[in-house]
């Protein structure tokens, strides 16, 4: 009995260590962002050297320097990112919900084919369409604007449509029938029944799309030309690539600033997150 309890404790310790390995890089980053340039480059592992007061002063100094950097305008990039995120999250959630309704609740000829097409497009790698997409946006005069980053979201995304369709199929059909007897059409059913019942799934779509926008790098890299339009991901890369002169403590502070909102969001919506991530593995 004792040995089994011992092995259990050992096993738990091992698991905690394994999990800690995943968080260690982030803690290391956070710690570096609280050091002075010399301390970060000192070759020693320092945690809050000089006491809490000095550490707090250094934190304030580092983050202030990043936030007010002359060449890399983080406040502006945050604003741009939020604009793109807001517009495309709303568009993505709404349009995916509509299309998924069509695929889940309406019988029509060719539905199977459309659904197969939706699934198949998940395989198309972005590089395949990157160049012609750039040229198409050029024809539209959208290069150098934020439009290419959020307009496509208003036409739905394959994965989100798939996810919502799966969810809708779990909503009992009888509800539709009852609503139809009450004289509701598809729009009514969609608005009064399906949407309210699928809130959790819609939250997953919105959340994941928000993260996607926040993280997207290749899109902004190609479609944005002017520094005033940069998003955070692009700005962070620019901050890093200035001639290799940026000190590590500031680089880590900048990275932490970009990561923090996502982590806060995660803390607040952990359950939705994990459910959403898990549905990604769903297959029929």
């Amino acid at each position: 009995m004792l040995s089994s309890r011992l092995s259990r404790a050992l096993f738990r310790t091992l698991m905690v260590l394994a999990a800690a390995m995943f968080l260690l890089p982030l803690l290391w980053m956070l710690n570096t962002s609280t050091l002075s340039e010399q301390q970060a480059a000192s070759g020693q592992v320092l945690v809050a050297p000089g006491g809490l007061g000095q550490t707090a002063a250094r934190v304030a100094e580092n983050y202030r320097r990043v936030w007010t950097d002359e060449a890399v305008n983080f406040p502006l990039y945050l604003r741009n990112t939020l604009i793109v995120a807001a517009l495309s999250v709303v568009g993505m959630t709404l349009s995916s919900a509509v299309v998924a309704y069509g695929l889940a609740r309406i019988e029509f000829k060719g539905r199977g084919a459309v659904f197969a097409l939706v699934l198949a497009t998940m395989m198309i790698p972005f590089p395949v369409i990157m160049a012609p997409l750039y040229l198409a946006f050029r024809e539209l005069g959208w290069i150098g604007t934020l439009l290419p980053l959020w307009v496509p979201a208003w036409f739905g995304g394959a994965f989100n449509i798939f996810l919502l369709r799966q969810f809708y199929r779990t909503i009992p059909r009888e509800l539709d029938e009852a609503a139809r007897i009450d004289g509701l059409g598809h729009v009514g059913i969609f608005l009064r029944i399906i949407l309210p019942l699928s809130k959790p799934a819609l939250a997953v779509v919105a959340l994941f799309h928000f993260i996607y926008v926040w993280n997207d790098f290749l899109g902004p890299l190609i479609f944005l030309t002017h520094r005033d339009q940069y998003t955070l991901a692009l700005g962070l890369q620019m901050y890093q690539s200035q001639a290799g002169l940026t000190p590590w403590n500031l680089l880590m502070a900048a990275s932490a600033m970009v990561i923090a909102p996502i982590l806060i969001l995660f803390m607040l919506t952990q359950r939705t997150f994990v459910q959403g991530a898990a549905t990604e593995g769903l297959k029929e």
Binding site: Y134, R138, I143, G144, T145, I222, T225, H226
Partner: peptide, 8 residues
């Protein structure tokens, strides 16, 4: 990219 995209 900017010149080809018409926003130089």
């Amino acid at each position: 990219i900017a010149i080809a995209g018409g926003s130089p």
